[in-house]
Design a protein around this nucleic acid. Sequence first.
RNA 1: AACGCAGGUAGAACUACCGCUGUAAGGAAACUUAUAGAGGAAAGUCCGGGCAACGUAGGGAAAUCCGCCUUGUGAAAACGAGGGUGCAUCAGCCAACAGUUGAUGUAACAGAAAGUGCCACAGAAACCAGGUAGCCACGGUAAAAACUUAGUUUUUAUUUUGGUGAUAGUGAAAAUGUGGGGUAAGAGCCCACAAGUAUUGUUAGUGAUAACAGUAUUUGGAAAACCUCGGAUGUUGAAAAGCCAAAUAAGUUGCGGUAAUUAAGUUUCCCGCUUAUUACCGAAAGGUAACCGCAAUGGGUAGGCUGAAUAGAUAAAUGGUAGUUUAUAUUCUUUCGCUUGCGAGAGAAAGAAACAGAACCCGGCUUAUAUACCUGUAUUAAAA
RNA 2: GGUCCCGUAGUUCAACUGGAUAGAAUGUCAGAUUCCGGUUCUGACGGUUGGGGGUUCGAAUCCCUUCGGGAUCA
Length: 111
Amino acid sequence: MDVLFKKGVSSVKSPVKIIIFKTTSPQQVYPNRMMFVVPKKIFKRANKRNLLKRRMREAFRLNKQLFYERINEREIKCISALIYTGNQLSDYSEIEKAVVYLLSNVVNKIK
RNA sequence: AACGCAGGUAGAACUACCGCUGUAAGGAAACUUAUAGAGGAAAGUCCGGGCAACGUAGGGAAAUCCGCCUUGUGAAAACGAGGGUGCAUCAGCCAACAGUUGAUGUAACAGAAAGUGCCACAGAAACCAGGUAGCCACGGUAAAAACUUAGUUUUUAUUUUGGUGAUAGUGAAAAUGUGGGGUAAGAGCCCACAAGUAUUGUUAGUGAUAACAGUAUUUGGAAAACCUCGGAUGUUGAAAAGCCAAAUAAGUUGCGGUAAUUAAGUUUCCCGCUUAUUACCGAAAGGUAACCGCAAUGGGUAGGCUGAAUAGAUAAAUGGUAGUUUAUAUUCUUUCGCUUGCGAGAGAAAGAAACAGAACCCGGCUUAUAUACCUGUAUUAAAA
RNA sequence: GGUCCCGUAGUUCAACUGGAUAGAAUGUCAGAUUCCGGUUCUGACGGUUGGGGGUUCGAAUCCCUUCGGGAUCA
């Protein structure tokens, strides 16, 4: 996880940020491992953090097919993190737009 | 009726598709099927338990919590009902105050008359009253006046000693208040009335307590300062605790065993050194003081399961989208009634948005809460 | 999950076991000094003592409640 945040490639589309890193670990079977983060400093209440994490997870779940195709094209395996950086609660539709944009564009940035 | 405040109750339902966590069954596996899946506060952690380890003859100290009475629930903390007492507000009686009656609200409601300490500034004094000024008495000194011619008496000033707690107006608070007697001056010193406290008795009441009578007494505030009294609690908390796995090495020190040492000298002991001796190695010269066990030190290991639950176990699931219905704010259309801009009915549109997310489990307390309903109440408006 | 501690001018700290206008340094502003600026000197401003309630004659201090921040455990 430390490696991800130090060496990973990041991309921002408000209110979500993505960090991705190409891994060479042989233990990983799946094409990608995703982590969802909502900072406690901005959202003090646990129910709001839960709500945002659920929305981000749902958006990723419905749109991950496209993301996996692009990864498989390049024949690599990744670990990545979705971080919520906004200050306010956003609707599901806003989050979904941001997540789709990031998933489609971030793969090209990997070296 | 509107709106505000306080308290209480509830804290929408259903369908489809795609998913999430646990459990069970099936399957080689991928996975499939069935079933269960957040709250009134899950929150704060302010209390009390269960449970676990350690401790425990009995008693005490310390520490923490509780504190009017009766009664109900409870394992206990605590909560409910009724009552008592104090305080506050409002109303009635009264010209007014005081007092009393009623209603409502409220109380960390045992003890300040066991003890220690505190009460700034101001004030004589903030609690054994009495240093100061004042007042009063006897005496001394000085001056003046009167009578009488030698002193006496009176007044004033000053002062020693004694008495006094009326006067001192400061403070949040000043030693119970008023009146009279009494006295050199005064004082609960005495008396009357009133107020308070303690205590005894009688009556009423289960009791807190109340009423009456007697006796004693006048003793500020604060216990949310320490503390005293009565009651309860052994201490520490699931990072407790149990089991499995892994690890507990080398070195150093001490004690003991075996043939693997012993003795003397060096100022008493230890270390070290010297000499002799014992054992082992070596052809000799010479070299070495082993090895094993226990304890300490030293460092090393530090993962999993149980605890654990018919929601659930290790970053933690309980969701997303679409639609329907309902409570309901709002808007529009329309019918009826008349008070002519309100009320009642019908239809359409829109339509769940509060506080908030279990982590060992229960019981209380506290705090946060859109909207609806219920109870109480302040204000405003209308009618009688 | 448990236990404990701390919140005071813009900033860093005081205020003794409750006693008065909450103080000091620094910062800010104004004035003086200087040709101008700095330094220096003088003065002023700046506080709901985190919020709310209670005890008390009196609360930054004691008690209750709440908000925020921090430490610690094997």
